[in-house]
Nucleic acid binder design. Structure first.
Lengths: 211, 211
DNA sequence: TGCATATCGTGATTTTTTTCACAAATTTTA
DNA sequence: TAAAATTTGTGAAAAAAATCACGATATGCA
């Protein structure tokens, strides 16, 4: 039985993965925990504790094998397990995500996009088709898709989410700036861009005011 | 002197704000902490503790005034203080963010976008102009812009960040899936979409495997 | 009025996360 | 070869965050 990883650990592991990818691009074979921690402004023992969760061994005086550590992270976070997804809402954000090929490296495989605008229906964007919403339930079942990415305007978000749930979607990645309700059996991730942004701007403002 | 708020508190406050906006749309005057906590799957005393940081008072048996609570959050997080920003990288994501008018409600005011592609230069998107990168340093100074939103492909991200720093940018909101280096005087927020996504998908996979 | 109920406010407790500190191991250098 | 330097691995301590528990207070109704 695998232990579950906390959100914080998962986030750090993806950051380590960014760094390791960079190391490979530069031909580095080993990297030490103090080096990683310095790049992320965290404590170096934190890095070692995270790595330990991966059953990965380091070498004293040298550090960790970049290739091995990268692979351990990919394995632990399931980058190789393909996760099929549909996008609901062919606006700017939906289209941007559909074109964002980097997702594939992490196992997220976006298959198609849906919208209720007949003008958008039938378009091919980044080799993926835009379907009319009415096709959604049928295609979810046929292609066995569990993940729905919600990029519709805020006011339609809840209705769309309900529709996705009814269609059999199990995970909703919601980009609308609102909190969605869903049954316990469906997991919703409210991506809160503005909240993330404020996290880095708010306390700085306060600091300036103190001066 | 204001106390600084932890990232977690800021994130929750923005979620409360989403809920309060929804309440206003539905004409609700009061909302209780158990109600909010239920919508977010958190403990109800957590909500009360967060609200307390806002110097806001609730009414026993009734809850909090929706309007007052919403205003306190807006004040505390500075939604009314305009924060000017430039976008670097006129790709899909940059364009999506430029068109995303919701940011304005939170004080984030995107003024223009920059790219090194001469074909994109001069375009007007959502009433905002796309300039050539070479204009960036001049306009940063002229318009006194402190925030740069980085939406260029990963491999150019560090060079662009360096350029932004040299131009006088103080906050970088980085959407490229990599960790950026910057001097201590510049604050970088590595927006890690894939990390956020994995946070809600990884442990679920584990749970399924356990069955 | 008086009782039942729902909520706030908050101190105490528990849990989680981060930091500290140091032994053991390995490499480099003199 | 021996000393110096650097890193891992990890138990202990500290700090931060979340949860629990309950008194105080307000509301509604018999």
């Amino acid at each position: 039985m695998k232990a579950t990883l906390s959100d914080k650990v998962i986030k750090r592991l993806t950051l380590y993965h960014f760094i390791l990818t960079e190391c490979i691009n530069h031909g580095l074979e080993y990297i030490s925990s103090p080096k990683i921690s310095e790049l992320l402004n965290i404590d170096n023992s934190q890095v070692r504790k995270d790595v330990k969760l991966l059953d990965n061994q380091g070498k004293c005086k040298v550090g960790y094998s970049v290739r091995e550590l990268k692979e351990s992270i990919e394995k632990k976070l399931g980058f190789k397990q393909k996760k099929d997804a549909f996008i609901m809402g062919a606006g700017n954000l939906g289209t941007a995500l559909l074109k964002y090929d980097d997702f594939k490296d992490y196992g997220l495989n976006i298959l198609a996009m849906f919208d209720n605008d007949p003008l958008k229906t039938g378009m091919i964007i980044n080799e993926k088709e835009v379907f009319h919403v009415s096709k959604f339930p049928e295609l979810v079942k046929k292609m066995n898709v569990e993940i729905g990415i919600l990029t519709v305007p805020s006011k339609y978000a809840q209705d769309c989410a309900d529709f996705m749930v009814k269609s059999g979607i199990k995970y909703i990645w919601n980009f609308a700036p609102r909190v969605l309700k869903a049954p316990k059996s469906v997991k919703v991730w409210n991506e809160n861009l503005i909240g993330n942004f404020l996290q880095f701007i708010v306390n700085e403002d306060v600091r300036n005011e103190e001066k």
